[in-house]
Design a protein around this nucleic acid. Structure first.
Lengths: 224, 224
DNA sequence: AATGAAACTGGACCACGGTCCGGTTAAGGT
DNA sequence: ACCTTAACCGGACCGTGGTCCAGTTTCATT
């Protein structure tokens, strides 16, 4: 089972005076498996919920699982689920949080070529490959976790990736609008696009990988 | 008011033996304002619905309009709305159909540089500008009309644009994987991205336009 | 004009995401 | 051990998108 176990990435921010759980601070390196001092019962329920969700998803697919079912399977009330995870995408995102953090740790402090040490272009290539395959592995979940259009780009995890790509680009193309170029590169790694190309159109992953390589080459080629 | 008046782009495809309305054949040039011989009452209701929807959207914003409200405002039952337009995004898409067809006509048969006659790179530049501004004009509607991730790229209108970009690219880069490159270019024009950059991040449209120009230049630069 | 069948209609109905709030419980101070 | 309080809990409740189907309307045929 592929579930997160514990760790953060919930986002309540409700009409209450609270601030009990961390908003996903994806960008900070301190990889402490935080768990922002949730009350004991709350933490226990959180774990139960994630476990139940993972189980149900493995059984019925990410799309065919209702929040109520998760609550029931975890033996808690529906309200508890929403209090903890905010909404459906919050729960799904929490399930992905583990691998998200791992990826982030890898390209932030891991060994080259993904981590620091390799030349920026190499890191960019490695980054795309990594995201591509990681996403493909958990495609259903990624698709189901995709929030509505208005929030898609505000999502902290996505912002984290985007920031990283931007910084790499800046080292390669100091004079370009790296923010926009990074958006373009990130767009190529959109789960929905991967799904369309790989599953709906039947393109093999190797072709997508080559596509990324080619794209990076074109984008980073200085116009000389 | 910005409504479509009549014309096609509905998609029922239900458990019935029917095939009464056209699936949006966006790619055919014959710009006949078809209306695929709907029954008289059906056609009337369709027009009423579109009009009512446009009105309500102008009043409450695209996001704050329920299907039931549209039905009520048009003086028909809820079932009728869904039979005609399939689902919420179907209705919203139908509202955009008019300008979608106009755009398509422009780049398919209009005057250069958008239409045929100009060199492919020029057409590509013009295409991006056109889509960019057209999308920005009706951003709310475009956002609300965006279907769930699984269908985003299967959507006929999007496929039409993608095909066109692919063909232009092929004229410029006969040896590249133009299909994938076209996806990348199209991704830059995603309404959700435009919304994020322009509205949420406050980038002026000129910057996005320059971004497009730059992107096209980089992507189409032969590596010599 | 009458008729039959296909197409359409409307609103009751359902499922699911999300909210609310009275009651409960854990945690820290005394 | 007890008290206070803020956080948490559960499940009743609501609105909305989408489905269903018995009844009605249109239109082609005769």
């Amino acid at each position: 089972m592929l579930y997160a176990g514990f760790m953060s990435a919930d986002l309540p921010l409700f009409p209450q005076p609270q601030e009990p759980l961390d908003t996903p601070r994806l960008l900070e390196v301190g990889s402490a498996p935080d768990e922002p001092c949730l009350r004991a019962d709350a933490a226990r329920n959180r774990a139960r919920l994630l476990e139940a969700a993972a189980e149900l998803i493995a059984e019925h697919g990410a799309a065919g699982v209702t929040m109520e079912a998760v609550a029931a399977a975890a033996g808690v009330g529906k309200g508890t689920v929403f209090r903890r995870f905010g909404d459906r995408t919050g729960l799904l995102t929490a399930l992905l949080d583990h691998s998200a953090r791992k990826l982030q740790a890898d390209f932030l402090g891991g060994p080259p070529p993904l981590g620091p040490g390799a030349p920026p272009v190499e890191r960019l290539h490695a980054f795309g490959r990594a995201v591509l395959y990681r996403t493909a592995e958990q495609l259903d979940l990624h698709l189901a976790a995709q929030p509505e259009p208005t929030r898609r780009f505000s999502h902290p995890a996505r912002r984290g990736l985007h920031t990283h790509v931007t910084m790499l680009l800046r080292q390669i193309l100091p004079d370009a609008d790296c923010d926009l170029l990074a958006q373009t590169l990130m767009a190529y790694l959109d789960p929905a696009l991967i799904n369309h190309l790989n599953r709906q159109c039947g393109m093999p992953m190797e072709r997508l990988e080559n596509g990324w390589t080619d794209l990076v080459a074109r984008v980073t080629s200085t116009g000389t």
